[in-house]
Structure formats: C-alpha cells, structure tokens
C-alpha cells in the first residue's frame, strides 16, 4: 500500500487552556514504537461536552492517540492534562483512569466468566455499585444471557458487554476506537445513545473511524495522517442519511 503525501495542516494549534477546564489537553505529545512513530507532536484541546471524530487511514495513529489519552500507553515525549489530571505523573494517570473509559478492538472481558460476573468484577475494580449490573445488561440486550460464559459470545455481543460496562461507569471521558465495527444497527444505536448521554452530562467523547461517516452526532473532526494531526475542523457530522 503506498501512502499519499501528508496534507498540510489547515488550522493553527489551539491555545493552551487552563488545565482544569478542558477534558483533554495534549501538548506536543508523541508516542513511538521503537523507531516507528505512532503519533508525533500532537497538540490538542477538547472541551467538555464535545464529541470528536478522529479520522484517518490505517496506521495513522488514531488508536495510539486514544490509548495514550486513556493511559494505556505512556507518551514518549510531551505532556498533557486529562480531566484536570497530569498525564505525566503516576498519581495523575491513576486519577484519569477513574473517569475514563476506552472501548477498543478488544473488549477486555474474561472469557471463562459469565457476562454478569465480568460486570460485577469491573464494578468492584472501579468502585461502582453492583446493583446496576442487571439494568446495564438489559440496556444492551444481554440480560437473558447474564449467566452465560462470555467465551460463547460473538464479537458483537462482547462489544455490547463492553458498552454495558460504560453504562455502569458513566465515564466523564469516553474513548471509542472504531465503535461500530461489527455491530448491528441496534447495537450501533446503543453507541449513539451512549455518546449523546456522555456529552449531554458534560463529558467528552473521542471516537475513531476510517473514513466512514459515524452513526452518531459529532461536533468536530480531527484528521490524522502518518501520526500527525493534519486537520482540525469544527464540522458537525451525522449518521448516514440523517439530517
């Protein structure tokens, strides 16, 4: 696969806000895998209430960006503030994890445990009351399978279980990596309602996609190419065929 030349940045980098106000503030963040840059020199500010779409071809750094924000990866250089906490300190990273949820290509379930057991364990790990497990499973359409081992679930069902985890945690910052891949229309609607809820409650959402339009409303579009942020447009996007 040949890569096209990177498009020149069309917008200037955002001014540095007061760290406590922005949901996400990254200052020249880079993350390398050995000598290969995952993301390079990204400066980004995301306000609370925003729902961002991060677009780019395969290998452009979308997943790396989300994983750095989620503290799954440590930045190689640069720094930032996530929900008012310093991304560069262990204490800050621990505090970020309290209110951030990442849904990626893996759903991070224990396959030998049942759906309900997985959720109860995650409730315990995240300090969330377990009383809401049944309601969360019902909301994603898995209540009837609550006592079934996750090993027998299809990828779409496991993704629904991950969405149930989001409903339980009610994160302030929701990071979705290709959230609708492999989901049926009903499950995609669950993603849409989750995004709407988080943004409406003053949280922020960052979701990645290739170049397919999202199935949920977003207010801003970032474009990554070869690990660099090449475009940042305030451009409402809606699901296909919707006004």
């Amino acid at each position: 696969m040949t890569r096209r030349a990177a498009e020149p940045r069309t917008t200037p980098p955002p001014p540095a806000p007061a760290p406590g106000r922005a949901a996400v503030y990254l200052d020249r963040i880079s993350r390398h895998y050995g000598h290969v840059p995952g993301i390079s020199d990204i400066t980004l500010s995301v306000e609370r209430g925003e729902a961002l779409l991060v677009r780019g071809p395969n290998g452009s750094g979308k997943s790396t960006l989300l994983r750095v924000i989620a503290t799954a990866l440590t930045p190689t250089s640069g720094g930032g503030w996530i929900l008012g906490h310093d991304l560069g300190t262990p204490e800050g990273r621990a505090a970020i994890r309290l209110d951030t949820e990442l849904i990626g290509d893996t759903t991070r379930c224990y396959l030998d445990l049942t759906a309900a057991e997985n959720l109860r364990f995650w409730c315990r790990m995240n300090g969330v009351p377990r009383a809401g497990v049944a309601a969360a499973l019902d909301r994603v359409g898995l209540l009837c399978l609550h006592s079934d081992p996750v090993r027998g679930f299809s990828p779409g069902m496991r993704q629904r279980l991950a969405l149930a985890r989001c409903y339980l945690r009610r994160p302030e910052l929701l990071l979705l990596d290709e959230p609708c891949a492999g989901l049926d229309p009903d499950a995609a609607a669950i993603v849409e309602s989750l995004v709407t809820e988080v943004a409406a409650h003053g949280g922020a959402v960052l979701a990645t996609t290739g170049f397919r339009p999202p199935t949920f409303r977003t207010t801003r579009v970032l474009t990554l190419f070869n690990g660099e942020l090449t475009a940042d447009r305030r451009q409402p996007l809606y699901g296909t065929g919707r006004p």
């Binding site: 621990a94 990626g104 379930c109 396959l111 030998d112 995650w122 790990m125």
Partner: peptide
C-alpha cells in the same frame, strides 16, 4: 491465557487499581 484473551489484562490496568 485468561489475561491475554480479549485483552483482559489491559482492562485491569486501565481500572483505577
């Protein structure tokens, strides 16, 4: 095997534990 299947260990590391 239990932790690597479906990236479960990462979920544990992303929890405030």
């Amino acid at each position: 095997d239990a932790e690597s299947e479906d990236g479960a260990l990462e979920g544990l590391l992303l929890a405030p534990v």
